[in-house]
Design a protein around this nucleic acid. Structure first.
Lengths: 344, 344
DNA sequence: TTAACGTCTTGGAACGCTCCAACGGCAGAA
DNA sequence: TTCTGCCGTTGGAGCGTTCCAAGACGTTAA
């Protein structure tokens, strides 16, 4: 009579392979095989071993596995120092799906603080030296990001959320097709009859921002609509975004595609200052579909990034590369979804 | 001449204690001591060993350390399955500071997916069985949360962001004093001359929500202001929040304290529907100071949770407990900060 | 000179796992 | 009967670290 039903009342003494082996009346290695290569065992033995495993609630000790197999089954995700005051609105859901996908494959995501500035890479170096991760997921990559090249040179598996803007192919990435998103937004607005459609973007030079601007531009061209003077730029700052939006208003724009929801709010503010509000005659579509988009008045239409899919895909590419470091690099572009609300 | 200047061009073969020992001309254990108990070495030897460590860029292999010391120096943070569609707006910054604090102490945060529903605890059990974490950080605790009791029974170190609402003292926690926050908000509004100050909260039964309501109530009483009929409730849903806010408007409230920024936006919507807007005659103070608060028009005043401090404090309590499991439990309440903007 | 002591340093053993070479038993062939 | 081959199973070795008991060495006391 062993207490099988109750799942071990307390954190008992650790259960080891050896104990399971004794219980099942087999050798140590046989238990290991039952877990890692069950096809090697006679069905009858397998059954007996599995029963013993369940009975004792055995789980392999990860550190011991890691030591022997030289693989931690941990994926590193570097969190940049909080000195950069702006929190990625995106991080949350992305980490979530990343972590779930990792878990399903027997991996886990380990967070580590990244020193700001030039020492950034030493944080990666350290984790690597400690054998604290088998690979990395990068996000927030932008022009001039040295991480990809650095990891690539060293043959360290990684995947980036965000394409490599430098043009050189240094590794796998997954990205959201910002241009496709803003193009879709333009086409939708044009379908509603708008012709003076502006773009409220970030200053040139950021990969993500330029990509989103390009989508607006190409769709405008395709539709034969003029783009001159219809593009304004501002950083993600309330006051500056509002002023930029006011410039757009002054040119008589009746609709705007914004590079972020934050910028889209600049349009809201500009209209309010003019005693108006967003609506059919002053439509706006944002980007990111942040949680507050549906709460605004009027609620904000926006391009939702498929973050769950991005996370899952990142993990898939990374695990594939962990399995075969010499396979060709893979690049995946996912389409954002246009979520329509009252602001159009 | 060893290539000292360049930090190892590639991921070379792993550097071990033994190699450092050979380099320094000492025994293996001496190197270990140089790292863990430097006071045991003669200064001269210590210097020599340290030099060799730097030269080779040695870092202890975490899995080997973990195996021997029976401590992974990993802190588990369970991410609940995405079935609950609502993302914690708070997670981001909290994880950030948690992770930084952990790093400073030589620990790291490991994310793991938590199965929803009744199996929730098995995810914790699994990580524990695998020796994949030395302790846990919980968040999103609420009434009926079984995790604290379960971990407490098993003697597993943990700290919760969020107090234990059941009243039983089952472990350390850090929380934000919601009542103090809403009280401060009421006092500020009263100082501006408001007397009919409503509370826009969540339905009763949630620990966090009831706490925030209590602060409003007690401050109102202290100031001799009536609370009857001035408290309405709604879940975090745009339409319902708007309706609740309209009820408050109908009673002639001139100011509102809301349990969340989301609810505060209900007040914005209700006013817009009535052709008005927030301002001196219809003030509002939200809770959480979400990133969009400064972007609204008018910008939203809100109670900012000191998330950096919460994360740091959580990690401090957890590390203290890891050091001494028998010390008395500690409970820390941090005050939110009233961030004033145009909405008042 | 030898014994005793304290300081600094050392190699063996073990943590729990997986790799590997080798083992025992059984079927069919010689 | 003995041999060969195969399948299923096994214990030794080792991953890189820390604990521990013991060693080397120089110094002081007997």
């Amino acid at each position: 009579m062993h207490p099988h039903s109750s799942p071990r009342p307390r954190t008992g003494p650790a259960v080891t392979l050896e104990m399971v082996a004794a219980r099942a009346g087999v050798g140590r290695q046989t238990v290991s095989n039952a877990i890692n290569s069950p096809e090697l065992l006679r069905p009858q033995t397998l059954e007996r071993v599995r029963h013993a495993i369940d009975e004792l609630g055995y789980r392999p000790h990860r550190a011991a596995q890691a030591l022997k197999t030289r693989a931690s089954r941990l994926i590193g995700y570097g969190i940049r120092s909080s000195s950069t005051r702006v929190p990625t609105p995106v991080l949350d859901q992305f980490l979530h799906s990343l972590s779930e996908a990792a878990d399903r494959a027997g991996y886990r995501v380990v967070l580590f603080a990244v020193a700001p500035g030039d020492d950034e890479l030493t944080s990666y170096q350290q984790l690597l030296d400690e054998h604290g991760a088998d690979g990395f997921v990068l996000s927030g990559t932008d022009r001039g990001d040295r991480r990809q090249g650095w990891l690539h040179e060293r043959g360290v598996p990684f995947v980036a959320f965000g394409r490599t803007w430098s043009g050189k192919d240094v590794g796998d990435w997954v990205d959201v097709d910002g241009a496709a998103g803003t193009s879709a937004a333009v086409r939708h607005l044009a379908g509603l009859g708008h012709r003076r459609i502006g773009f409220l973007g970030w200053p040139k030079g950021s990969g993500v921002g330029d990509d989103r601007a390009r989508g607006w531009q190409s769709a405008m061209r395709e539709l034969g609509l003029p783009t001159r003077g219809r593009r304004v730029a501002s950083p993600d700052d309330p006051e500056q975004a509002t002023e930029a939006a006011e410039k757009l208003l002054a040119t008589g724009a009746t609709a705007v595609v914004a590079a972020s929801d934050t910028l889209a709010l600049g349009w809201y503010r500009a209209l309010r200052r003019a005693g108006r509000g967003p609506g059919p005659e002053a439509a706006v579509i944002g980007f990111d579909d942040s949680p507050i988009a549906p709460l605004l008045f009027p609620s904000l239409s926006s391009l939702a990034q498929p973050l769950d899919a991005v996370g899952r895909t990142c993990m898939r590419l990374l695990l594939d590369r962990l399995g075969d470091r010499d396979r060709p690099t893979e690049h995946i572009l996912l389409e954002p979804e246009l979520v329509l609300r009252e602001s159009v």
